[in-house]
Computed example of a mutant assay.
Amino acid sequence: MAVAASVPATHLIRKVTTVDSTVTNDAARPRRLTPTERRIIAYVAANEGKPCSKAKIAGSLGRNVKTVNRLVSRLRDEGILVCEYLWAENGAQLANSYRLAREPGHQQRSDNAQP
C-alpha cells in the first residue's frame, strides 16, 4: 500500500486494521514500517491497555523476543507506542501495558514510580 508523503501521521496510527507502512522519523523523512512492526502495532491495538510482556507479544507473532524488544523500543522512540509501567504492591515490576499514541510524536511514558 503506497502512502503519499503528505498523509498525516494521525492517519497512519488510527488505521490499525490496515496499518500503513510509512511513518515519519525524527528528520521528518518517511520510513517504511517492517512487517513485524505492523504486526506489533496491530497486536497492541487489539490488546490495548492490557498488561503484556514482550515475550508474550513475540510468542503471539512467532518472532524472537530480542527482535520484538528492539522494534517495540523503536516504535516507542518514534512516538507510535506508549509504554505504561506497572508495579505490584510489594514493589516488583509487572508486565508493561502498551497502547497506541493518540497524536504523532506523542512520547508520553507513564511515570508510575516504584513504591
Score class of each variant (00 low, 15 high):
P8L: 01
I80G: 01
S60A: 14
K50M: 05
P35D: 09
I40S: 03
R31F: 04
V7K: 08
S6C: 05
D77E: 14
A55C: 06
N47H: 15
L94E: 14
I80S: 04
P51Q: 04
N96I: 00
E103C: 01
E103G: 05
R14L: 01
H106F: 04
D77V: 02
E48F: 00
D20W: 07
R39M: 08
S73E: 15
S97A: 13
A9Y: 02
E37F: 00
H11C: 11
L94V: 01
T10R: 13
N64S: 09
I41E: 07
A88H: 13
T24E: 02
P51S: 04
V72A: 02
P8A: 00
E84I: 07
I41F: 09
V16M: 03
E84G: 05
Q108W: 11
S21H: 10
N25E: 11
G79H: 12
R32H: 14
V23H: 09
S53H: 04
L12R: 14
N47A: 10
G49H: 07
R109N: 02
T36Q: 05
C83S: 12
C52M: 13
T36M: 07
R29D: 06
T67M: 04
E89I: 05
S60E: 12
T36D: 12
I41A: 09
Q107R: 15
E37Y: 01
A4N: 13
V7Q: 02
R32Q: 12
V3F: 10
A4K: 13
S97Y: 00
L86D: 09
W87N: 04
V19T: 15
T10V: 14
K50Q: 12
L61N: 07
T67A: 08
E78Y: 11
E78P: 05
L33D: 07
I40F: 00
A4D: 12
K15V: 05
Q108V: 12
Y98P: 10
V7P: 03
R14A: 09
P104M: 00
N96P: 15
A4M: 10
V72N: 12
I13L: 15
V7L: 10
A46L: 12
K66Y: 01
T18R: 07
E48Q: 14
G49E: 09
R31W: 06
V3R: 15
L81V: 05
A45C: 08
G59D: 15
R109H: 03
P35W: 00
R76I: 14
T18A: 12
I57V: 13
Q108D: 05
S97E: 11
S97R: 13
N64H: 11
K56W: 03
L81K: 04
I13W: 05
R76N: 11
Q93E: 14
E84W: 00
Q107M: 10
A92P: 03
L12Y: 07
A4F: 08
I13G: 06
V44R: 07
A58N: 11
R63T: 08
H11Y: 03
V16P: 11
H11L: 06
A4E: 12
G62A: 02
V23A: 06
A88W: 04
A27T: 11
P8W: 00
R63V: 08
R76L: 10
E48G: 06
A9P: 01
R102Y: 00
Y85W: 03
A4L: 10
S53T: 14
I13M: 15
R70N: 13
R99Y: 04
A4R: 15
